[in-house]
Design a protein around this nucleic acid. Structure first.
Length: 591
RNA sequence: GGUCUCAUAGCUCAACCGGAUAGAGCACCGGUUUUCUAAACCGGGGGUUACAGGUUCGAUCCCUGUUGGGACUACCA
C-alpha cells in the first residue's frame, strides 16, 4: 500500500472536480511536509495556477476544501502556493496493518527478474587490499543486495587481475631474495607477504634509476634501462610463453594472495557467486579483436597495432592490440564482457570501479556498440570517487595507504575500548563480547563509507573520523538493540486491534517506515547505497524521539496504546535490520 | 592543450531530480534519567550554497563565464 499513490489519486480527483483539469495521477508531485509546518504531505500548486485561473492561495484552498469535505484528509493548511495535507489517522493505521501482514513488504518487483551481473572488488594480486578497495567492496556488495531486494536476479562477480608486469615484479623480488619465504615460514598473511616483495622490487628499481640518472641518462631512459625492470619484463615474456618454472612460481604466489584475500573478504562480509581471471579472459579478448577486424570495425596500422575510431562518439582513437600482438587492459575487458554474457545472458552488467576509469568504460561501451554486441547497452559503470586522507591521496608507493586488514583490526579495538567503557556487557561471555566488538567496529567503518554519495570523493581521517555517536553505524545498531530490549520487556504476543489518536512522533515514524519501498527503489535504480544509509539513520532518529516521548511498556500505558506501540517498535526494528542487512552491517540484539 | 568531474555551517555529510525559513552529525554552550538501554533526547549559536551573470512565479539544483581542487587524455592496469 502506497500512501503517495493514494494522495495522488485524491488530488487527481480534486483537480478534475474543482477545476476540470485532467492530469495523470503519476505526474502529480508530492513532497513530504517540512518539519516546521503542520502536515504529512505537501502539494505544490504553482504548476497548475495557469489552468485554474486563480491565485496560488485560492487554488490550494479550493483543493484542500474539497478533499476535506470528501473526508479524504483530516485537515489542511495553505502557505503561499503550498497545500499541506494532514492524513486521516485511519489511513496511516491501515498502511501499518497492511505492511505488517505483507510478507514481501521489504521487497519490490521493480527489477522484473532481470538478470544483472555486478562486478566488484577486482583486485590485483601483487599487494594486499587497502581502504580504497574497502569502499569498492562495500559498495559492490550493497548494490548487489539492494538489487536483489528490488527484484533483480543478481550474480556477484569478482574479476581478478592475476597476470601482468606487476605480479612479475613481486615474483622477481621474491626469487632474488633467495629466502624462500612462505606465509608459514614468515608468519605473514599471504597477500601481505607478496606485497612486501612488491615494495622490495620498487625500492631496488628506484635505486637503479637514481644510479642511471647520475650516470647521465634522462629519467625516462633510466626507467627503461634499469636492470630489474628488464628482468621483470623478461619474466612476463616467459610467463606468456608458458615457461613451467615461471608458471609454477606464479601459481604458488597467487595462491598465497588468494588465501589472504579470502580472510579479508570474510571479515568484510562480502561474497561472490563467480570469479573471473584475466589470465583466462585476455585471449578471448584477442579473438574478439580479430572478429572486429574481420567486420572492419577496427583497423590495423602499418606497424601492426590494432585501433578503433570512436571520434563519432565524442571519444578518440583507441588502441586495442599492441604492435607486438600482446593485449592491453581494454582487450581483456572486451573478453570478460563476452564471457560474462556467455555465462549469464545478462540484461545488465554493472562494473563497480573507481571514477578514474570513467573514460575507459565509455570506450568499452563504444567498442561493444560498434561490434553490435547484444549486451552493449546493458553495461553500466557504477563509478565512485577516490578515498582521500587528510594528507591527500593514498599512494601505495609512498606508503600512505591505509591497509584493509590493519584498519579492521583498529576498528575492532576501538569498539572494544568504547564497549568496555559503557559497561553494558554484564552476563556476556568473552566470545560474545568479542563478536559484539567486531559487529560494532565494522558497523562504524561500513556506515561511514556507505553514507556518502558514491560519486563523491570521500575524506577519511583515521584519527577522528570514525565515531560511535550521532550519525553513525553504532547509533543505528543501538536503536535496534533498544527496540529489542523494550519488546522483551513488553512481550510481543499481543494482537493489535486498534489505535487511539496518533501522536506526532507516531505519525512521523509511520511515514518514515512507509518510505522504505520508495527508498529501496531509488537506491536500486540509481545504484546508490547511500540512499539506504541516510534513510535508516532517519528512521532511527525518528524512533529515538518516539521512544523518548511515547512510553511503551510502562505501568500506566493503556493496553491498546501499548499494543500498538510495541507493534510499531517491532516493525521499526525489522525495517532497521533489513536496511543494515542491505549495507552488510550486523544488527546485534544487545549492546 | 582537450574532455570529464567536484565546490553547501569550523569539520564530515544531507537536501525527495526546479519549491517554503538550505537540514543532520561532530565540535562548542545550556538542559533532560527515583520511569522501557544516556551509544539516547531537547534547546542555543553557527550559511551571501566558491564568484559573476542568465533562464522563471520560484535556482544549492538548469545554462554561460571566472576562480580553485581532482581525474582522464599511455603501445600502464
Amino acid at each position: 500500500m502506497n500512501l503517495v499513490h493514494i494522495i495522488q489519486s485524491y488530488l487527481k480527483g480534486a483537480l478534475q472536480q474543482v477545476f476540470d483539469i485532467e492530469v495523470e495521477s503519476a505526474t502529480i508531485k508530492l513532497e513530504q511536509t517540512l518539519q516546521d509546518y503542520k502536515g504529512d504531505y505537501t502539494f505544490v500548486v504553482f504548476p497548475y495556477v495557469k489552468q485554474t485561473r486563480k491565485s496560488p492561495e485560492q487554488t490550494a484552498a479550493a483543493l484542500g476544501d474539497f478533499l476535506q469535505s470528501q473526508n479524504k484528509i483530516a485537515e489542511y493548511n495553505v502557505v503561499k502556493g503550498f497545500l499541506n495535507l494532514v492524513l486521516n489517522d485511519a489511513l496511516l493505521f491501515e498502511f501499518f496493518i497492511a505492511a505488517g501482514k505483507d510478507e514481501n513488504h521489504f521487497r519490490t518487483n521493480t527489477g522484473g527478474a532481470k538478470k544483472v551481473v555486478v562486478e566488484y572488488s577486482s583486485p590485483n594480486t601483487n599487494k594486499p587490499l587497502h581502504l580504497g578497495h574497502i569502499r569498492n567492496n562495500l559498495l559492490g556488495f550493497a548494490v548487489a543486495e539492494i538489487l536483489k531486494s528490488g527484484g533483480y536476479d543478481v550474480k556477484k562477480a569478482n574479476l581478478i587481475n592475476d597476470r601482468g608486469i606487476h605480479i612479475c615484479k613481486s615474483m622477481l623480488a621474491w626469487q632474488q631474495s633467495g629466502l624462500q619465504e612462505t606465509p608459514q615460514s614468515s608468519g605473514l598473511k599471504g597477500d601481505h607477504l607478496v606485497g612486501k616483495y612488491y615494495v622490495a622490487f620498487d625500492k631496488t628499481y628506484k635505486a637503479e634509476i637514481e644510479a642511471l640518472v647520475n650516470d647521465g641518462l634522462t629519467e625516462d631512459e633510466a626507467k627503461k634501462k634499469a636492470q630489474s625492470m628488464i628482468e621483470a619484463q623478461q619474466m612476463l615474456l616467459r610467463w606468456e610463453n608458458g615457461d613451467p618454472e615461471t608458471i609454477a612460481l606464479w601459481k604458488l604466489m597467487n595462491g598465497w594472495v588468494y588465501d589472504g584475500f579470502d580472510v579479508t573478504y570474510k571479515r568484510l562480509g562480502v561474497d561472490f557467486d563467480t570469479y573471473y581471471y584475466e589470465s583466462n579472459t585476455y585471449l578471448l579478448g584477442k579473438a574478439i579483436v580479430q572478429e572486429g577486424l574481420d567486420k572492419k570495425v577496427f583497423y590495423k596500422k602499418e606497424d601492426g597495432s590494432v585501433w578503433i575510431d570512436l571520434t563519432d562518439e565524442g571519444l578518440d582513437h583507441k588502441l586495442l592490440l599492441r604492435a607486438d600482438g600482446t593485449s592491453v587492459y581494454i582487450t581483456q575487458d572486451i573478453g570478460t564482457a563476452q564471457l560474462k554474457y556467455d555465462d549469464f545472458h545478462y540484461d545488465m552488467s554493472l562494473y563497480v570501479v573507481g571514477n578514474e576509469q570513467d573514460y575507459h568504460f565509455k570506450v568499452l561501451q563504444g567498442i561493444l556498440k560498434k561490434m553490435e554486441k547484444p549486451y552493449a547497452n546493458g553495461i553500466h559503470h557504477v563509478s565512485y570517487g577516490m578515498v582521500d586522507l587528510p594528507s591527500g591521496k593514498m599512494k601505495s608507493r609512498e606508503g600512505t595507504v591505509v591497509d584493509a586488514d590493519d584498519l579492521m583490526e583498529e576498528m575492532h579495538d576501538e569498539a572494544r575500548r568504547i564497549i568496555l567503557e559503557r559497561g553494558k556487557t554484564e552476563g556476556m561471555t568473552a566470545e560474545q563480547i568479542d563478536a559484539l566488538c567486531e559487529d560494532v567496529g565494522m558497523a562504524a567503518l561500513k556506515y561511514y563509507l556507505l553514507r556518502v554519495d558514491p560519486q563523491k570523493r570521500l575524506l577519511f581521517n583515521p584519527a577522528e573520523s570514525i565515531d560511535f555517536e550521532g550519525n553513525t553505524g553504532p547509533y543505528i545498531q543501538y536503536t535496534n538493540a533498544r527496540i529489542n530490549s523494550v519488546i522483551d520487556k513488553a512481550g510481543d504476543n499481543l494482537v493489535n486491534t486498534g489505535y487511539s489518536t496518533l501522536l506526532e512522533p507516531e505519525r512521523e515514524l509511520l511515514l518514515a517506515l512507509h518510505n522504505y519501498k520508495i527508498t529501496l527503489d531509488k537506491a536500486a535504480t540509481t545504484y546508490n547505497p547511500s540512499e539506504i544509509a541516510n534513510y535508516v539513520y532517519d528512521v532511527a532518529r525518528i524512533y529515538n524521539r518516539f521512544y523518548y516521548e511515547c512510553p511503551i511498556a510502562k505501568e500506566d500505558v493503556a493496553l491498546e496504546t501499548r499494543t500498538f506501540r510495541v507493534a510499531l517498535s517491532k516493525f521499526t526494528g525489522q525495517t532497521i535490520s533489513e536496511c543494515l542487512r542491505l549495507l552488510g552491517i550486523k544488527a546485534p540484539k544487545k549492546m
